[in-house]
Design a protein around this nucleic acid. Sequence first.
DNA 1: TACTGGATTCACT
DNA 2: GTGAATCCAGTAA
Length: 187
Amino acid sequence: MRWKDVAGIKKKLSKDFFKRDTIQVAKELLGKIIEFNGVKGMIVETEAYGKDEASHASKKTERSKLMYNTFGKIYVYLVYGNYYCLNFTTEENAPGAVLIRSLEPLNGLDIMKRRRKSDDLTTGPGKLCQALNINLLVNGTDINDKLKIYDNDLKFDIVKTTRVGISKAKDLKLRFYIKGNDYISQL
DNA sequence: TACTGGATTCACT
DNA sequence: GTGAATCCAGTAA
């Protein structure tokens, strides 16, 4: 399969996909395709957040309650006053979410370049939200409502898993990566 | 009501 | 490698 074919996949990911264990969801989201207003990218880096000190879910607040009450919903928040981060809530009976850290751009590259004012489009959580024009307007909405996620039958090997310490918090987060360009050239 | 600091990015050295 | 930008959620009072 060529990467152009991947961009054309129309099989939507079911909400139940997010009902499961956060780490499992974070792993399996790799290779899935996000579309927002016609702009598309393949997920190549994710980060799993459960109920721990490094996560918003460490305390149930107005902002983080989405992580407690829901799965398969979009959780967007502002960091450092400048950038949004895109997450999907997970697990039916426990708080959790998966942060999307990096995408491989597939469609709408010109639009992304214009929004980013750069050729570095989606290689960070803040960057990809800027490229896709994701903001608080989609916070709390169901997946496949405004923002769509497409499934595929492709199997990806996780090329790297890192445990990441978050500043003051002692807890470590799990990040998962697949190779973007290398994989796309092999499809 | 006021203060603190952050799941980031970018410019500059 | 370092520091600034920027603003809102969370917390303390």
